[in-house]
C-alpha cells in the first residue's frame, strides 16, 4: 500500500562563526579605464560569492556589473576573508566590499561635487552617471574618474567587517551571532509499505534571506540544500567501524540523483537585515537544515510511527511497520 504524509520543519540559523570574531576584508580600486577591481579573500566554491560581491560593488558605485573584476581567494594578493562556511560570506565579505566601495565612492563624489559646484551629500552614483537630488546628470562616473586621474587622485578603498558578537557565558547565554536566517520547509512524501521506500513528492522551502542579492543563485542554493536534505533524511549514512569509514564510495554511500528530484518550490522571503549589505544575510546552510525534519514529520504523518534516527531507510521502515503491526511498539518508541 502507498501512504502519503505531509510534514513541516522550521529552523533558525546564526550567520557566521559562533561567538567568535570572524572578520573579512576587501580592497577595491577603480582603474583608469573604469574597471572596478575587487580583491577579496572570499573563496567562491560554487555558491556564487564572486558574483554577489561584484553586484555589491557595482551597486554601491552605480556602475555595470560587467565593469567589476573580482580577484577572489588568492592569498598572494587578497586580504583575509575567513572561511567560506557558516553561511557568512554574503553578509560578512559583502559588508567588507560595500565599505571598500563606499570609501572609493567618497573620492568620486567629492570630485563630482567640485565639478558641479554642488554639495557631495546631494549627489549619488547610478547607471554609470552622477545623480543630483534624484535627477540624472550628464556627468558620467568615468568622466569623474578621469578628472581624478588628471589631478593625480587615486580612487581606492578598503573595508573590513566583523559581526558584533559576544562569547557565551557558562549558562550558554550571550549574543553569539549578529544576525539569524529563518526558514520553513514543508515536505509531501509517499511511503510504499511493502518495500519501505519513501519517495519525496514535493518540497516547499521558504527562506528569509534578508535580501536576495542574486535571486537565481539563492534559489539554486535552496534547491541544492533541499536535495542534500533528502539525502540526509533518506539515504546518506557514513558507516564507521573503529574509526574506519566502511562505505567510502558512491556505490555504497548513496547521494540523491536526478531521478530522486521532487517538485521543489523555493520561496524567497525578504526581510531586510539592517546590518547586512543591501539588507542581505545568508542562505547556504539554512537550505539544508529543515529538510530532514520535514521529511521525518511527513513519514510520521503517513505511518503513525516516529523515527529518531537518520537516514530513514526502507529496512527501518519495514522493521517499524512490522513492530507496529504486532502491537509491540507504540508511536514514539521506534528508532
Amino acid at each position: 500500500m502507498k501512504k502519503r504524509g505531509i510534514g513541516v520543519g522550521c529552523m533558525f540559523y546564526g550567520i557566521g562563526n559562533t561567538g567568535m570574531p570572524n572578520p573579512a576584508g576587501a580592497f577595491l580600486d577603480l582603474t583608469d579605464d573604469g574597471t572596478v577591481l575587487v580583491l577579496t579573500g572570499c573563496a567562491d566554491i560554487g555558491q556564487g560569492s564572486s558574483t554577489v560581491l561584484a553586484q555589491i560593488a557595482a551597486g554601491e558605485l552605480g556602475v555595470n556589473i560587467e565593469d567589476v573584476l573580482v580577484v577572489a581567494g588568492d592569498t598572494g594578493v587578497s586580504p583575509d576573508a575567513g572561511a567560506t562556511s557558516a553561511s557568512r560570506q554574503t553578509y560578512i565579505s559583502g559588508n567588507a566590499v560595500l565599505l571598500a566601495a563606499r570609501q572609493a565612492k567618497e573620492v568620486l563624489l567629492e570630485e563630482a561635487a567640485g565639478i558641479m559646484a554642488a554639495a557631495a551629500s546631494d549627489l549619488c552614483l547610478r547607471d554609470g552617471h552622477v545623480w543630483r537630488a534624484g535627477e540624472k546628470t550628464p556627468l558620467t562616473v568615468k568622466e569623474v574618474l578621469a578628472a581624478c586621474r588628471k589631478k593625480g587622485k587615486l580612487t581606492l578603498g578598503s573595508g573590513w567587517f566583523n559581526p558584533e558578537t559576544t562569547g557565551m557565558d557558562e549558562t550558554g547565554r550571550g549574543a553569539p551571532y549578529a544576525t539569524y536566517s529563518y526558514a520553513t520547509q514543508v515536505a509531501e512524501i509517499e511511503v510504499d509499505t511493502e518495500t519501505g521506500k519513501v519517495s519525496v513528492l514535493r518540497l516547499v522551502a521558504a527562506h528569509d534571506v534578508g535580501r536576495a542579492i542574486n535571486p537565481k543563485s539563492v534559489e539554486g542554493q535552496i534547491e541544492g540544500g533541499c536535495l542534500m536534505g533528502i539525502g540526509y533524511a533518506l539515504l546518506e549514512e557514513v558507516k564507521l567501524t573503529e574509526g574506519r569509514i566502511g562505505n567510502p564510495r558512491y556505490a555504497e554511500y548513496l547521494l540523491p540523483m536526478s531521478l530522486d528530484v521532487p517538485e521543489i518550490h523555493a520561496i524567497i522571503v525578504e526581510e531586510p537585515e539592517i546590518t547586512g549589505p543591501f539588507g542581505a544575510k545568508g542562505v547556504g546552510e539554512p537550505a539544508l537544515i529543515p529538510t530532514a525534519a520535514a521529511i521525518a514529520n511527513a513519514v510520521a504523518d503517513a505511518l503513525g510511527v516516529r523515527f529518531y534516527d537518520l537516514p530513514i531507510t526502507p529496512e527501518k521502515i519495514l522493521a517499524a511497520l512490522s513492530a507496529k503491526g504486532d502491537g509491540s511498539a507504540r508511536m514514539g518508541e521506534i528508532t
Partner: peptide, 12 residues
C-alpha cells in the same frame, strides 16, 4: 541520472 551533482539539486 548517471551524473551526480552535489550543488544544484538538479532542478536548474
Amino acid at each position: 541520472s548517471g551524473n551526480l551533482c552535489r550543488c544544484t539539486g538538479y532542478i536548474k
